[in-house]
Design a protein around this nucleic acid. Structure first.
Lengths: 247, 247
DNA sequence: CGGCTATGGACAGCACCACTATCCGATAGT
DNA sequence: ACTATCGGATAGTGGTGCTGTCCATAGCCG
């Protein structure tokens, strides 16, 4: 066990914890006080850390998801389902009654001819977010839905293509799980980068570091309503603004 | 206070808690044992609940973000920065040393002529995810980056357009915060829906409910590599598979 | 064969977080 | 005067993700 810990970089007490919690299968017992672990334990440990640290899963969710990875006879759709649920916060599911938000999501699904089952975690989650937009009195944010859905289609296509490229069933399941769980984090990160890029493109920063872009009055709002500028011109490769650090 | 609680639907002890934690400004003291609250307190409470429940922020992050919303003299980029950091898990920032993952992200940024500062939370987060992909020995998932970046650009354009549509500075800041924090949740939800849609389109389900889609051998991998099917044909509006529930 | 050390397993404890319950003095209403 | 309610302060709760302690056993060394 100490060697497993050394190779994987996970502290021995944590390895014990994962064993106890059922995330990591037990090693082959060689003696009453010896157990042997193999490569599969090392890679499982790495997957565990990725799910917990990068994907932000709870131990309980990770256990469910790993059980699915180990189950060879599980239909593909079910793997997706479990992986999706593991990253969705359960509290969002409760007490969602049909309302304006649900109608908006239903309309979106219909418009796009999407095939989405009523119990899909995303459907309920999306309705929850729309509901939140309405509750905080920002209905204009609901208008983001269409472009977000465009982007979601692109990402989902890529996800499925990655899954289809897998050789065996276990590989597929692991790809689905890793792609679903870590993909959320990856997209969120890329979104932040793209946001900074677009921001600096729309609101080029003046040389004065204390320049208050938003202060005073409306900041002249350049052509921010031209959203399909997917050809990034080599604009403003100068005057690079480091983000302010939180005080 | 009890009326505020009743109108907003937040329990009195929680209101007290948010007051204590500095998320909610104190009401006007009318007497030693009376305080008066207005509409701004109600909407603030709703925003707090949206950030905590839907956005999944911690109380500490919500406090930072709300302080930014209240600060009228803050540059636009700084508002984005704080909002972005609030949704990024801080532990991902630590101990990231330049490596293959960072190089991959740098290459992406260069390819796209993106303007992203080195300290951008997304940059570090994306490198962390790529690193995780490599560590769990799934380098093929790194290939998702390009399509994800396409999608991220679309979303960021939409985000900025929504911000530019705002009237006043406070409105802009609130839109940025709500859009950034809740937008993550919204995209993740739409991604789940799109995944189910694409899955059922690629792997139409047979009538037999016990059909094992992934079992046995490779599932014939249809044209999953045609990712730009942004015009959803009216395919497979039949044979609707409810997702399996977690056992 | 005797002692020393290391191992794996069980269990309890800890730190953090988001609340929540209790208490208290000060009114407001009757 | 009396009771109910209010605000604020403080302490407690339940859940989570480890982490530390203890112990019987076993391998190793002389």
């Amino acid at each position: 066990m100490s060697e497993l810990s050394r190779v994987s970089g996970v502290p021995v007490p944590s390895v014990k914890f994962y064993l106890r919690e059922g995330l990591l299968p037990a090693g082959r017992r060689a003696a009453a006080n010896q157990a042997e672990y193999g490569d599969e334990h090392v890679s499982r440990l790495r997957l565990i850390r990725a799910l917990l640290d990068v994907g932000g899963l709870s131990v309980a969710s990770a256990r469910e998801v790993l059980a699915v990875v180990d189950d060879e006879d599980r239909p593909l759709a079910s793997v997706f389902d479990v992986a999706q649920r593991s990253v969705s916060r359960a509290d969002l599911y409760s007490a969602r009654t049909p309302g304006a938000a649900e109608d908006r999501i239903d309309a979106l699904v219909e418009e796009r001819n999407w095939h989405v089952s009523p119990g899909n975690p995303g459907r309920i989650g999306a309705a929850g977010v729309v509901d939140a937009f309405l509750r905080i009195d920002r209905p204009e944010l609901v208008g983001l839905l269409d472009r977000y859905a465009d982007a979601a289609e692109i990402v989902a296509q890529a996800d499925l293509a990655a899954v289809a490229g897998q050789e065996d069933v276990t590989g597929m399941a692991e790809t689905i799980v890793a792609g679903t769980v870590l993909g959320d984090a990856m997209f969120a990160a890329l979104r932040r980068m793209a946001q900074e890029h677009v921001t600096t493109r729309l609101y080029p920063v003046s040389a004065d570091p204390s320049a208050d872009l938003a202060g005073g009055s409306r900041p002249s709002t350049p052509d921010a309503s031209a959203p399909t500028a997917s050809t990034p011109d080599a604009s403003t490769s100068h005057a690079h603004t480091p983000h302010a650090s939180t005080p």
